[in-house]
């Protein structure tokens, strides 16, 4: 790889994100995929908005607008419309957290997807309302303690990719930041593709997950390995392709849980999560049309 020129960063040094933030990693990886493409960023109220730094300094290295919490896909639709009307190659990218994607921004997201707006929507899913100090969202996994579910969340995480697939958008994918090649390939495809693209990123949050900042990518790796975080692509809402095969390791899953204090109180174990993971993978196998044993020996 060539020398990295930091001045060309989408997300510049001197930002105020926590050390080890998955959103920061996402933005660094995004830069490599974007390359020389002109880009405008739309960011709803979330950690990303705070990451934008204080007026008038530019923490984001591309023109950026902060939208209200629920509105990012709508604002992006406006920007994308102007770009299209003017034959402007600028790619419009939304960077939203799970709150702005799964919850408050859900209707707006669904509508923009249904209209197949020319937008790349990136959800950095840290499974928590990080910006307000760590409350549950519909992306918070079962058993995770948040500041408003002190005994651990009772409900399961929403399957946002299934929802996005139901919109039959040209491209939807989950991403593993721990697999730089996978991330790079998907980012590059998603930037280049026309129409509505959705990327779902498991974004480690040391503050919310109560984990070591240095272990963020390792946690993602464990989630991928164990099958907890399936990494796959959906083309046009119908063609499914698994991009990273897990080994469905219970050891990895238990390690994933034990390295995060948010699961301590509920005592969630691999055995608790495994049935749901297996169901999820059965349906994923059926959809991807590839019959691979759900669990490999050894």
């Amino acid at each position: 790889m060539n020398e990295i020129c930091n001045t060309a960063a989408i997300f510049r040094q001197g930002n105020t994100n926590c050390g080890g933030c998955g959103m920061s990693i996402t933005l660094q990886m995004l830069r490599r995929a974007v390359g020389a493409n002109p880009v405008h960023l739309v960011i709803p109220a979330c950690c990303g908005a705070v990451a934008g730094g204080t007026f008038p300094q530019s923490t984001f290295g591309v023109p950026t607008i902060m939208s209200t919490f629920a509105s990012a896909p709508a604002v992006a639709s406006g920007l994308a419309s102007v770009a299209a009307l003017n034959g402007d190659p600028t790619r419009i990218i939304v960077l939203a957290g799970d709150g702005g994607t799964f919850d408050i921004g859900f209707a707006t997201l669904s509508a923009a997807a249904e209209r197949n707006e020319d937008i790349l929507f990136i959800c950095y899913d840290n499974e928590i309302y990080g910006n307000t100090g760590g409350q549950r969202s519909s992306a918070t996994p079962q058993g995770a303690v948040t500041s408003n579910t002190l005994e651990g969340k009772l409900e399961q995480k929403k399957d946002i990719l299934a929802v996005m697939a139901a919109h039959r958008i040209p491209y939807a994918a989950s991403v593993s930041l721990a697999h730089a090649d996978d991330t790079q390939k998907k980012f590059a495809h998603a930037v280049a593709q026309k129409g509505f693209r959705f990327l779902h990123i498991l974004s480690p949050c040391p503050t919310g997950w109560k984990s070591e900042p240095a272990l963020g990518l390792e946690l993602v790796r464990l989630a991928v390995r164990s099958g907890l975080w399936p990494v796959y692509e959906i083309f046009d809402g119908k063609r499914y392709a698994v991009t990273i095969e897990p080994d469905f390791s219970d050891e990895a899953l238990d390690l994933y849980l034990s390295l995060q204090r948010r699961f301590q109180k509920s005592g969630m174990t691999a055995a608790d999560l495994r049935p749901a993971i297996e169901r999820n993978w059965q349906s994923l196998r059926a959809l991807s049309g590839r019959i691979i044993p759900g669990k490999r020996e050894g």
Partner: peptide, 15 residues
């Protein structure tokens, strides 16, 4: 380049 690629701050450069 693993360090460079995984740095959240983009503050690692190769020279």
């Amino acid at each position: 380049d693993t360090c460079l690629l995984s740095c959240p701050e983009g503050v690692i450069a190769q020279r």
